[in-house]
């Protein structure tokens, strides 16, 4: 009650600055740009500077509005774009599942480790995140190459007779995605697992539920919010990933982020790049809303 009374006569200026400044910044540099992307996606490419036409013009007292819907039509009809979109969703799905399969047991092992070991173990998960992402992806080129370390190792073991082609395949992209995004899966899972009420597991054990049964019926359902949160943190950015498929992937099966890059930098077709961004955004709205809901529910508890 006391705090409430104080904050009532607290200068409104503080409130204005706290809310207003970040709001203004994000409104101007994060929200407004999307409106402009939407506008440009309906323009036509042109050989002008900047390379797109105006949407409306005053000609002799007449307002001329020209909306170009050909890009959306192109994206929905041309198999290049459809395949890139499907491929992106597929890579994001495989990457997310891979992170989950590897990340869940890791998070579980860390969360059940003796208390003193948990922080160092967690630090080791976060540490690679602090070194350059680009360089860490690049490291895989040397490993997955035809004459790279993985092939050298497998040949030496005698498992294979001739080098496997891994670099510039989908497999390399999956490896790169799992490698780069694993920490984003482990952190929310760990946070969820450490909050788990252990007495429930003891009760289950007392009632004759064996460890696997306890995991399936108690631990996993209770950590589902962490699973979903981690999955979204991996899935959403991976759909638009550029660096990993560009350095490790097969040039024959592009992801949508690469297409946007090419349309923009190589073909200078800004309206088409903007249209791809709009389509990508529309696809990502659903997982994003799920994530946002979950976060708000989390805060209420």
């Amino acid at each position: 009650m006391k705090l409430q009374a104080v904050s009532d006569d607290e200068p409104r200026l503080g409130r204005l600055i706290n809310i207003g400044l970040p709001y203004l910044w994000l409104g101007l540099f994060f929200l407004l740009p999307f409106v402009i992307v939407l506008r440009i996606s309906l323009a036509e490419p042109a050989l002008t500077q900047p390379p797109y036409t105006a949407l409306w013009e005053w000609v002799d007292g007449m307002l001329e509005i020209r909306l170009n819907l050909r890009n959306l039509q192109l994206i929905s009809e041309d198999s290049l774009y459809l395949q890139a979109l499907l491929n992106s969703l597929w890579v994001a799905l495989v990457g997310t599942l891979g992170c989950l399969v590897l990340g869940y047991p890791m998070a579980y092992a860390i969360a059940t480790a003796p208390e003193r070991q948990r922080v160092p173990l967690l630090m080791l998960i976060i540490l690679p995140f602090w070194t350059s992402f680009l360089i860490r992806v690049y490291a895989w080129i040397g490993i997955l190459n035809a004459n790279g370390l993985l092939n050298g190792f497998l040949l030496w073991l005698g498992v294979i007779d001739e080098p496997l082609k891994i670099l510039h395949t989908q497999t390399a992209v999956y490896i790169g995605v799992i490698y780069s995004y694993l920490p984003f899966m482990i952190l929310p899972l760990y946070a969820n697992l450490t909050r788990l009420d252990r007495t429930l597991l003891e009760a289950a054990a007392d009632l004759g539920c064996r460890p696997w049964c306890a995991f399936r019926r108690i631990t996993f359902p209770l950590t589902l919010p962490g699973v979903i949160a981690g999955s979204m943190l991996v899935f959403i950015p991976v759909v638009g990933e550029f660096v990993i498929p560009d350095l490790l992937g097969n040039p024959g099966s592009l992801m949508v982020g690469q297409l946007m890059w090419t349309e923009f930098f190589a073909n200078k077709d800004w309206p088409l790049a903007a249209s791809l961004a709009i389509v990508l955004l529309a696809i990502l709205v659903v997982p994003f809303v799920i994530m946002q809901r979950l976060q708000q529910e989390n805060e209420m508890n």
Binding site: Y23, P237, G240, A273, L280
Partner: peptide
Amino acid sequence: LFELLLTAPLVMPDVIIGLSLLLLFVA
């Protein structure tokens, strides 16, 4: 909306942020 604007940049693909900001700067 404020919370949305603070969460979205965490997961938004870089290509979208980059392209949309460039178009803003040009405009």
